[in-house]
Nucleic acid binder design. Sequence first.
DNA 1: GGTAAATCCGACCATATGGTCTGTATATAG
DNA 2: CTATATACAGACCATATGGTCGGATTTACC
Lengths: 197, 197
Amino acid sequence: MATMQRLQTTGLELFYAKGYYDTSVDDILKKLELSKGAFYYHFDSKEDFFIQIIQNLLARKIYSTLIEPIEGHDNPLTLITKCFDDAMETAVHNELDYGCILSNFLTEFNGKNEVIMRHLNEIVTVWEVNLVTALQKGKFNGYLDRHVDCEAAATFLMSSYFGVRTLMTSAAPSAKKYRFMSQLRQYFKSIESKVIS
Amino acid sequence: MATMQRLQTTGLELFYAKGYYDTSVDDILKKLELSKGAFYYHFDSKEDFFIQIIQNLLARKIYSTLIEPIEGHDNPLTLITKCFDDAMETAVHNELDYGCILSNFLTEFNGKNEVIMRHLNEIVTVWEVNLVTALQKGKFNGYLDRHVDCEAAATFLMSSYFGVRTLMTSAAPSAKKYRFMSQLRQYFKSIESKVIS
DNA sequence: GGTAAATCCGACCATATGGTCTGTATATAG
DNA sequence: CTATATACAGACCATATGGTCGGATTTACC
């Protein structure tokens, strides 16, 4: 793999595990047995490096795990349930889970780096838009009750997912997942179509 | 106010705003016009300093905003609704909101500092226990449906609150709050007692 | 093979950080 | 009045960090 790719991949790994500010460029270079010269040949600065990681790796990761799985013409509540379940199951099986990567970075950069925040918020917006669209389509197709506020539901879903991923890192991730999913289904039952088919 | 108190208060402010690792001891001392001598006379290290802040300030803050308001014999769903509403309203009116302070620190220290994580998780546990207790009492008093899994509901509530506070920092906090609260009520309606009184 | 561009090395620099240590002013007690 | 503990000042230190720079090495191309 090309050096630039390796740097970004390892960079994301370490930034996710230790945070941006607590991960030095040297940490990344040491792990890859590369030198300062290699890094600053490919990237202007640590910030530039991270922004490229966001666009090249993080955005795709979020898309493939949280957005793409909910696209389709099936019941969005079913799709979202499976999507969250899968994402959380991956986290459970991960030896060292550090929570939702997007949520973590949002927390870390909030109020500290506006440029990076803009890039992160863009991903959040994409996720939100896709969730709202999926829910609206579901409403149109008769899966959701016609009184459901899709924007509100999307906000609620994003919130709960961000939060549970944070909570899962503390203790008993598997139990947390199970409990969360049971109440998510409870919530979904309350917004699904009331028409007896 | 005594120097030790001022250090802790200002320390928490800055740690909350900029994060623990991105806030230097000098930052705090500069803001208070104090010297290194003053700091290391009162505290053994930066870590010891932070742990004392957790116990003296953070724990009380969480207790007064998230735990104490839900104690009582009224409908816990009503109490929790008002509690979350108040907490989020405070955040909305706060010029610079950085999310839920407890959630932020959990994210920052996860996988990095086990000692601090233990202290933070203790606070989380206290919150969880109180939530579960309040819900169980509510079930006993006929406010909640008797099939409700109170542990699961507590996990769901904590998750959603952590998450929405993170989301609120990104954009349109007031709208996010409104949307979140509407769906929280929706969820609560689905777990409240079905008995027609 | 020669040349030039691309890629990488690693010494070096300015600055920042957590922490130490000596000194000093004030207060309190005998 | 003296002595001792408290409370703070600030110079100092070892280390770490982001970033620079001249040079070496490899690759691509004619």
